[in-house]
Design a protein around this nucleic acid. Sequence first.
DNA 1: TCGATACCTGACGTTGACGTCAGACGTAAG
DNA 2: CTTACGTCTGACGTCAACGTCAGGTATCGA
Lengths: 120, 120
Amino acid sequence: MRIGELATRAKVSVRALRYYEEQGLLLSHRSPSGQRHYGEPAVDRVQLIQDLYSAGLTSKTIADLLPCVDAQVSTPESRARLAAERDRIDSQIADLIQTRDRLDAVIALTGTQASGCAYV
Amino acid sequence: MRIGELATRAKVSVRALRYYEEQGLLLSHRSPSGQRHYGEPAVDRVQLIQDLYSAGLTSKTIADLLPCVDAQVSTPESRARLAAERDRIDSQIADLIQTRDRLDAVIALTGTQASGCAYV
DNA sequence: TCGATACCTGACGTTGACGTCAGACGTAAG
DNA sequence: CTTACGTCTGACGTCAACGTCAGGTATCGA
């Protein structure tokens, strides 16, 4: 498929896909005229890239780690890197849960007021 | 305390504190010469602000919601806003857990290789 | 064959949360 | 009183992940 279709199916912009390629996260076959073509697995890969981005990983980190995901091989360094990122995400989850609970408490408190309006 | 001490104790930069004030997230008493002074609760407040930032809230959103936290009062709109942000954080947590598990799987796979080095 | 899209490569613009620097004033220790 | 450090207000710089625009080429349905 071409870049437009991949963008639609993976729900990202065409610009984002070109950016991923620029960062070495996504490969494409080029037609003789230079247009990018992708296989089916590209859809999942883009999704994975998005997930890693939204988990707070940077392009460079993703570029470092994706080869491990691809080849399912790792050097001692990349294993450490993977574990470090996993731990970072773990503590990020813990922080988020704390913040969510704090928001919940606020909601509960402000909810107890009958109408709870500031200018009653 | 003055801004430098607050920065140290809350582990943020002086610049960040001035930025928070600029965004309406943090108040200060000014000495006659114009220097900022803070009370003890400011330390916790800065921590809360940081938590909300790292949960993905924007300055404006935080500025909208902090009055509810302070006064423990809310309008119907702010209650909806609080709930919306809470739900966003919830799904963010779910996404992070998925990504973490995916990383775990990768670690498990690459770990099975005895030494797992790419250039064995 | 022709027009409507889709795609290409630069390259500059955007946004948020600060970093950093300049130039001037405040404050505390000796 | 001086010296050194803390603080002040602008105001420009930064960085990542794209958005957007310009000018030209490709592809495809009718």
